[in-house]
Amino acid sequence: MRKASWFNVGSVALGLAFLYLPIVILVIYSFNASRLVTVWGGWSTRWYSELIADRAMLESAWVTLRIALLSATAATVLGTLAAIALVRFGRFRGRLLFSGMVYAPLVMPEVITGLALLLLFVAVDVDRGFWTITIAHTTLITCFVTVVVQSRLVTFDVSLEEAAMDLGCPPLRTFLTVTLPLIWPAVAAGWMLAFTLSLDDLVVASFTTGPGATTLPIRIYSEVRLGVKPEINAICSILIAIVATGIVGASLLAKFHDVGRGGIGGLAAR
């Protein structure tokens, strides 16, 4: 048993306070009755009901959700394949370039990725909008899935797969019946990470968007530039509530530790 010294408890407590205070304040102010965001005018759900009437905002939310679902799913397939290739295939031709392309988007400044993808879409002359954002997001978030799944594959006992194949199970069936069930928590965590990253993205979406595809971050950003508004407090609080419920629910469902670790832990614990 470790001793929890005052210094350690203090630094964790301060760190958590720093992380949570702004969010808590934001949520509290979303229930402020006053239109002046800085003056407290009592509790009210007024801004939430105004939000429901805001068709443009709802439209954006729907577009964002569809893009996130599609691109997270595509990225999960691509990212899992890439992780298997990197962990299991040892050396293959072009591996260096491959791993470079897999890891680079993790740290690449988004303005560069966004600009590059837009120039590609212009060069091949496609109509920009829903599908270009979806493709761009898939490219952006695949690497995160790869990293998460990879961290699980590395600790995975290969002899299980070998046993199945020695007993005459074909490779695809081995993958579906042995490998996939075992790496499933990481795949699910990767999907969730990809999903929230897509929901969240402003920069790449701004570059690759077109008429009729204004995502929620793009809309929030253009409103925020004009100043703080109670409606924005409300929509942000709703988004926070959705994400928090999702994460806490998922951590309770799956074994808390494993998914949490496999998720962001896998991303950062390298």
Partner: peptide, 24 residues
Amino acid sequence: PIVFVLVVLPFWTSFLIRIYAWIN
């Protein structure tokens, strides 16, 4: 595990929202 999830949780909420919270 609890402290870990608590530190990770804000990361999952939107980046834009967290910046906006600071504008407030």
